[in-house]
Amino acid sequence: MRILNLIPLLIIVSFVVFMFVHIIPGDPARLLAGQDATREEVELARSVLNLDKPLLQQYFIYMSGLFVGDLGFSIKSGASVAQIISDRILPSLGLTFASIVWATVVGMLIGILSATFRNRWPDQLGMLTAISGISLPNFWVGLVIIQIFSVQLGWFPTGGAGSWQSYIMPSFALGAGIMAIIARFTRSSLVESLKQDYIRTGRSKGLGKGSIVFGHALKNSLIPVITVTGLQFGFLLGGSVVVETVFSFPGLGTLLIDSIQFRDYPVIQALILLFALQFILVNFIVDIIYGFVNPKIRYD
């Protein structure tokens, strides 16, 4: 049922991205044929790109290409876009995964500590960390930690994705904002749970603080935390473009920026679609997890 609801959204999103190549200024056919191409060459490029066909037919060609993994060809290198993307996708996924994992673990820990020691110094420190994390420009964090840990201390490589060590600093810079948001939501959600009657019951039965927080309250606080993690995933995808640029990380983000500088529209188009699909997919998964964590919610 949920999947059925998703289909119209996917169709509209793909159409919007498809239209991208039609609203850009300039003629994509001329761009492909080159600056000093003859009229015939431009026309040839136009038919290669199917731009001479009616718009709807073009959309169908584009969509049927998508289903078999045909995303067109790069204007810059002539290689297939699917190939270019598949070379870059693994480092990016690794980076995103590393960021979300540490951000969730640390964010929830800070949130739990803050809620347990509400209005005392661990709470104040935790929330100060959180609001600073949301306010930090991730590219600046990246540049500062490169200066400290690579240039001065020499602990980590300044960029690239050659070894696991080269993932540490980018995932730190990328995850800091999400960590902060998760910490704030865990705290407020847990504070809310701790006010409930069943917690008072537990306390009156003589349960310890740890058992109350971890055994009872936390489970019920997870739902908003999961939702917000899903929503913030988009923030992570966007941030990856910036952070990858800072660390010269060979992922999809740097590919996007390179392609924009070269006006390599087929690659830009495919990447924007891919980012949107990832975001939709993650929110879809979050919806499903939601149902598992809280069986009261059933989609029917």
């Binding site: 959204l9 991208f20 924007i272």
Partner: peptide, 24 residues
């Protein structure tokens, strides 16, 4: 709301990058 859903499907910065790629 449907239009909003479509806009929400694109991460903020990615949407902005796409728009700047179109507009310059």
């Amino acid at each position: 709301m449907r239009v909003c859903d479509v806009l929400f499907a694109f991460p903020d910065i990615i949407l902005a990058i796409g728009i700047v790629a179109i507009l310059g």
